[in-house]
Design a protein around this nucleic acid. Sequence first.
DNA 1: GCCGTTTGACGTACGGTGTATGCTTACTGC
DNA 2: GCAGTAAGCATACACCGTACGTCAAACGGC
Lengths: 213, 213
Amino acid sequence: MTATERQPLTKERIITAAVAFADEHGIEALSMRKLGSELGVEAMSLYNHVDGKDDILDSMVDFLFASIGPVDTDSDWVETTRAAALAAKRVFASHPWSVQLISSREGLSEASFALMDALMGRLLDEGYSPKLAHHAWHAIASHVMGYAFQEIYSVFGKGEDHDHDRAERMLAEFAPKYPALAKIAPHLMECSHDEEFEFGLDLILTGIAAQKP
Amino acid sequence: MTATERQPLTKERIITAAVAFADEHGIEALSMRKLGSELGVEAMSLYNHVDGKDDILDSMVDFLFASIGPVDTDSDWVETTRAAALAAKRVFASHPWSVQLISSREGLSEASFALMDALMGRLLDEGYSPKLAHHAWHAIASHVMGYAFQEIYSVFGKGEDHDHDRAERMLAEFAPKYPALAKIAPHLMECSHDEEFEFGLDLILTGIAAQKP
DNA sequence: GCCGTTTGACGTACGGTGTATGCTTACTGC
DNA sequence: GCAGTAAGCATACACCGTACGTCAAACGGC
């Protein structure tokens, strides 16, 4: 069993495997034993590279925020913010365990501070007051996290992995009880999560732009 | 040990105790054994009234949405929606485990459908198209969930239970690295979560109102 | 070449979890 | 008084995170 046959364990390999495992089996199924066996190793061997399960979970959060990528600082702040928000929403939506994981952790990721700083910097450069920039941050961040939440847990929409029949059965069942819901049902079924996300985002961005000093 | 000395266990008593326990010790500390002992009963006795831990957790989600209360159908739709959104945010923020719990469950609560139907009904009555009502729902729901997320996990703000010193230490540490963040730091420290929430909510509501047919 | 030290994987064990199963107690209708 | 039933209890199992001790391989100084 030489190094050429089995590459050495590293923290990076562990986190990558943990992300892949969570993508496939869900975050609640992730255990040290299963993660170890995924890497061809005993559970306790992971502890030589990682502080424990909490360390793995925190690192997965960091992975998520790092996946959002750098903020484009060249273009208009509206375009910059829109692109960053879309990128963030796509990262969260593509890892359905992301919202649950982030909400189960206490501290915020270092990478999230960097993102926040970059976006706030663009607004301040543009002449916005720190107070308004602060308002804007909360409004935009709420929309991103909140929409990711909705997209991940929605049984509706036209994503390829959605159970279309189950959604229609639910709506048919609710129709007599919830008439207003029945009326918007066609739009729920055909919901494009990118377009829907941008609708709300534009409401917020144009509202903020209107308050530019 | 008669009925007068110990009132019988019921599902309602179990859920109430579970909510109280989560409020005090956090949702991750909630276990069947501890919940049983909180009620003066063995863990397995709970199973006579409840389908298992998942049933308890689902019922806690229902409790949350039921706590939001009925939608006021008398006043202007903007006021109606604003009041419901504020009520929802307050419920979530007052149970810090709410976001984590909801995001760990698959299905949506029945009570959440009722809330959605009531609000959508108000918009449709007002003359909004089903399509626009659908847009509005996503935008508003995102803001509520997303802001609850931020409020629960923020170390900043002026709530009475916030660790003010720790927040200032964090900001001082980040100041050299994140200059834009340092500039808005005073507003982070003095952040009023109700005002902040309403700022974003008004952006969305006025944006929707402007599109009224 | 040789030896002390460090590294990393392993195996065992402990206290915790959710819950299936069977037993026993207490109350109800007659 | 007594059968029937509801509900609390005790045991047991599989799984979890991880503290701890062992041991083989790798490495640096001489």
